[in-house]
Amino acid sequence: MIRTAFLRIIPLILCGCSLAFSAKATEPDSIRTVERQWLFGVGRTNLLDTYLSPLEYTGPSLSVNHRTDRLAHFGQKRISVISHYGAQVARTASPTEDAHAWDMSVRAIGGLVRQWKPSDRWRVAAGGLVDGAVGMTYNTRNGNNPAQARFEVSVDADILAEYAFPLLNKTARVRAELTAPLFGVAFTPRFGQSYYELVSLQLRDRNCIFSQVVNAPSARFATTIDLPLFGACVSVGFLSDIRQSKFHGIKHHCWQNQFVVGYTRTLSICR
């Protein structure tokens, strides 16, 4: 239910912002671009959650990510609305492979960036995003502490750079984007709190915690190259998603490095 509510809130906030500013928009008949990208990733995950085990688990992971980047109706073509939706799943094993842990999460990010175009080939942008994620890690061997749930909402800083260059009479593009949470709120059990207390008894003990770059230093870096190929735009690249936290003495990290492949579509909208 929390996830559903959150997924509903994000578009509402973005729509609200858009509507508020679009009332002031005074640029009729302009061309605006909307870029949509799907990326499918495969790679390795390094997982640690000391609530479940002091050992680091490693294993393969898969992800699917969708990104939308469109020029806002306001801001005189200097503001873009960016959104990311993604899901990942990883099956990891303990160092001795006696135990396994499944990790899965769903993430939605949206916000505004201010963009600059120093030249025709370059585009750089920076801004702020609202980031929400739910997820869990399930250890197949544990007893009363078999799983760890995650829920976090944060405000992220986002910077991106794009460079377009000619390739076989068409235009290719390299893109890099870095997103890092600055502050927010996150769910966590206390050091030795059981989910029996949290779920069955509905007992709370400071389980909602203020997160910031010191207790939750995380970052997501994605770099892709968009290649025009047979009339489509194929994207290949690398995604590094570093999620870390240390709440109430419970250390968690999920380091994911994936090769991604997908496609990008750019639509021009004439208004």
């Binding site: 002091p54 800083a157 890092a180 600055l182 770059v213 010191v214 230093p217 870390q244 936290s245 250390k251």
Partner: peptide, 25 residues
């Protein structure tokens, strides 16, 4: 000049790996 860059720089000053020190097998 842009305070946003300052914020980003500060952010990455704090970023470090969170790991658990586990003895060898």
């Amino acid at each position: 000049r842009n305070p946003f860059y300052l914020l980003i720089s500060l952010c990455f000053c704090f970023v470090s790996c969170i790991t658990e020190e586990v003895a060898q097998d």
